[in-house]
């Protein structure tokens, strides 16, 4: 993996870690014993790391969600499942590389997996269209989910995309319609659905894969109707004020849990999922195991009823008082 600049807020930590490394090198070269000093510094680094990552602002979490080394959907599929075969295409137009899907084995049980796929480098990103799906991507997703329903296997979706692709051809082929149909299809699907928001949950393009019985979210992920950059450019005509917009949008897992939008927050390794893919994968696996066991027991009709009821109650408004009329 290419070297990535640390975030601004990580710099004190990175400096300290460098000092520890240097001291260790010096000790081994000079055959000196500074183990006590080193242990002290390591404790200090640990505390500092905890402090830094415990107090991230909403926008810092957004940036973490976009970290170039953060695991992608295919990484999670490899880490969370025992086996996987990828299926392609919407059977109508083409295969959209921005969405991957297929059948996987989860602890011995076949499940259908779907999720957007971001690239790691320029070449991959071109092939994956930066993880921005076209209508045929959503149609592939829906096709695979219907297949899951036919064979009675649960659906797991991963969500990590800024939005559906805003392009001429995407519009020509009915981007809005494809999203609406995907939402509709998931809403009434007679098998258990778990969605894991692993990175970015941007607007309708994300919701189209997120109409689930249980919605889980990684600690450094965001989910909202609009990206903080777009929100800032609408509010102040200045996308550089994205950090302020991120705070206003309440797009972090803690807020979303409070709002009843998500069911649980999956803890990431200290410093973010990119620091330890395997650990993050294990965490997700444990959460899926737990929630799948919970919803697998529910009869299909009741499952759909409960899913609809979950979304039915989302929204805040008040009845107009008589005096106001």
């Amino acid at each position: 993996m290419s070297r990535v600049q640390p975030f601004e807020w990580e710099k004190p930590l990175v400096e300290l870690e460098e000092r520890i490394k240097e001291l260790k090198r010096f000790c081994s070269r000079a055959k000196l014993d500074f183990s006590e000093e080193i242990a002290n510094l390591e404790r200090k680094a640990w505390t500092l790391r905890r402090e830094i990552y415990a107090s991230l602002t909403p926008y810092q979490r957004v940036l973490m969600a976009r970290h170039p080394h953060r695991p992608t959907t295919l990484d999670y599929i490899r880490l969370v499942f025992d086996d996987f075969v990828e299926f392609h295409g919407d059977r109508t137009f083409r295969d959209d590389g921005a969405i991957v899907g297929g059948v996987a084995l989860f602890e011995g049980q076949p499940v259908t997996v779907v999720g957007p796929q971001k690239g790691r480098d320029t070449k991959e990103n071109v092939a994956r269209n930066f993880g921005l799906p076209h209508p045929e991507g959503y149609r592939k997703a829906l096709r695979l989910m219907k297949q899951a329903e036919k064979f009675g296997r649960p659906v797991i979706t991963f969500i990590d995309l800024v939005g559906a692709y805003p392009g001429v051809e995407a519009e020509e082929r009915g981007q809005g319609l494809a999203i609406a149909q995907c939402i509709e299809g998931m809403s009434f699907l007679k098998v258990p659905i778990i969605s894991v928001i692993t990175g970015e949950g941007g607007s309708g393009g994300a919701l189209a894969l997120g109409v689930a019985d249980r919605v889980l979210m990684l600690e450094n992920a965001w989910y909202s109707v609009i990206s903080p950059e777009m929100c800032a450019s609408i509010l102040w005509r200045d996308s550089a004020r994205a950090a302020e917009a991120a705070a206003l949008l309440r797009l972090s897992p803690t807020d979303l849990l409070k709002f009843g939008i998500i069911d649980d927050v999956i803890t990431e390794p200290l410093g973010g999922a990119h620091r330890d893919h395997a650990f993050t994968g294990m965490q997700i696996r444990a959460f899926i195991r737990r929630y799948l066991a919970e919803i697998k027991r529910i009869a299909p009709e009741r499952l759909v009823e409960e899913r609809l009821a979950r979304f039915r109650k989302l929204g805040q408004f008040r009845e107009k008082r008589l005096a106001e009329i």
Binding site: A180, S187, S203, L207, V225, C231, L249, L251, L314
Partner: peptide, 20 residues
Amino acid sequence: ARMQEGVFSLMQMAKTVQAV
């Protein structure tokens, strides 16, 4: 979807589709 209600606006998409 109305920006000022953030994720709540987004959820109206699911809610209305389900009623339809």
